[in-house]
């Protein structure tokens, strides 16, 4: 079964061009995210559980990646969001 993720707690975000700044209410931390497609980031910060395949579909609509680069990119993005305590693994 694919690992599921969802947002950890409440966040408020601001999107400008290629920048996104995310405020995490529980920790009080503010995070700058550069060059992450807005639609992908919004999917990652969803309260509805999602897996890598869901993100795969979203990113294919907004960026051009080779299959391998795409998987690596999603893995790195998820790892970074977990490290920042913005998302959590559900299973």
């Amino acid at each position: 079964m694919d690992v599921k993720y969802c947002i950890s707690g409440k966040v408020t975000s601001a999107f400008w061009d290629k920048d996104c700044v995310i405020y995490h209410h529980e920790s009080g931390n503010t995070h700058l995210m550069n060059d992450v497609p807005e639609a992908l980031l919004k999917s990652c910060l969803s309260h509805i559980p999602y897996d890598r395949n869901d993100l795969h579909e979203v990113i294919q609509q907004c960026s051009e990646f080779s299959e391998q680069d795409l998987s690596e990119y999603i893995n790195e993005l998820l790892a970074m969001l977990i490290k920042k305590n913005l998302i959590e693994q559900l299973n």
Binding site: T12, A14, W16, V21, T30, M33, N34
Partner: peptide
């Protein structure tokens, strides 16, 4: 960029963290 500006202004603020959201 606006994102970097927000982060830098927050760093220069005395009470940004205290004010929370």
């Amino acid at each position: 960029s606006k994102g970097q500006t927000l982060m830098d202004v927050a760093d220069n603020s005395f009470n940004y963290s205290r004010l929370g959201s």
